[in-house]
């Protein structure tokens, strides 16, 4: 629904103190409209700072964040409306649940936006569906839910604000493989159906390869690589040099090439590798 353009963005933590640290250094990226972009980078690469920039929780020292053609800080008083347009789901979002019922908690954002009651009702029930929460759970206290259900309730709380851009920081952290697959495919289905632009921050190369349309790699406060998963993961050596990894199956493809069987280095899912190995099939 909207693209976010980052222009010449820089940010320094603790300016003027002995702990001064350049977190973002002249960043230029565009997070495309109507797709899932993966943001990867080792801890301290500046990706969390960047995420806080996208919805105006932090204000850049220099440079611009342009949402739908307009600088979000053009009118600092209206920054809270930007927070509704760019929904942010933090790491372990279940720890922010607070209201008596799941339904009320999900309605917190829409209510702050000033939606009418019937709009809220609709937004909540849609979000509940997208997040894959069983409808009978929404009258319960959020604290009686299981870990995975809490995560979904928190996700629904942001989806209910109908953001144009949805940013998720490690949405699958701490979940078991089944729950991981479930929540990530929910997010993908939501993106495909609603047309929202989605940005996922994650450490899991396998997940990124499976669910993202584009991947941006950050290191030392600047983006160092950008492209489709095939493009990015085929440059494994560069990824290793910035302290990152590639999916295991990409390593197999590299080893195969060394053994004289070249199925290409742009392999990043098992399905893909299988297709190339068995000939024809996928892609």
């Amino acid at each position: 629904m909207a693209e976010i353009q980052i222009k010449d963005l820089s940010y320094i933590y603790g300016k003027g103190t002995p702990y001064e640290m350049k977190a973002l250094d002249n960043v230029n990226i565009t997070f495309g409209d109507n797709m899932i972009t993966g943001l990867i980078g080792h801890t301290g690469s500046g990706k969390s700072t960047l995420v806080h920039m996208l919805n105006g929780l932090l204000r850049p020292d220099s440079g611009q964040v342009i949402l739908g053609g307009k600088d979000i800080w053009a009118d600092p008083k209206k920054i809270s409306s930007v927070r509704f347009r760019v929904g942010l789901v933090m790491q372990y979002p279940e720890y922010q649940l607070f209201d008596e019922t799941v339904k009320k908690d999900i309605a917190f954002g829409p209510k702050n936006m000033g939606m009418k009651p019937e709009e809220i009702e609709k937004a909540v029930s849609e979000a509940v569906k997208f997040a894959g929460l069983r409808p009978e759970l929404i009258e319960k206290s959020p604290f009686d839910l299981s870990g995975g259900q809490k995560r979904r309730a928190a996700l629904a709380g942001v989806m209910a604000m109908k953001p144009e851009v949805l940013v998720l920081d490690e949405p699958a952290a701490g979940l078991d493989p089944g729950a991981r697959r479930e929540i990530l495919s929910r997010i993908r289905d939501y993106q495909r159906e609603s047309g929202t632009s989605v940005i996922i921050v994650s450490h899991s190369m396998e997940d990124m390869a499976m669910y993202c349309d584009r991947v941006v790699v950050m290191s030392h406060g600047t983006p160092v690589m950008e492209g489709t998963p095939a493009e990015v993961f085929s440059r494994a050596d560069e990824l290793f040099s910035v302290g990152l990894d590639v999916p295991e199956v990409t390593k197999v493809a590299r080893a195969l090439k060394e053994c004289g069987v070249d199925i290409g280095l742009d392999i990043y899912t098992v399905k893909f590798a299988l297709g190339r190995l068995l000939g024809g099939g996928e892609i």
Partner: peptide, 8 residues
């Protein structure tokens, strides 16, 4: 991964 490639 290397052993896997060798097996393939």
């Amino acid at each position: 991964p290397c052993e896997c490639a060798a097996e393939i």
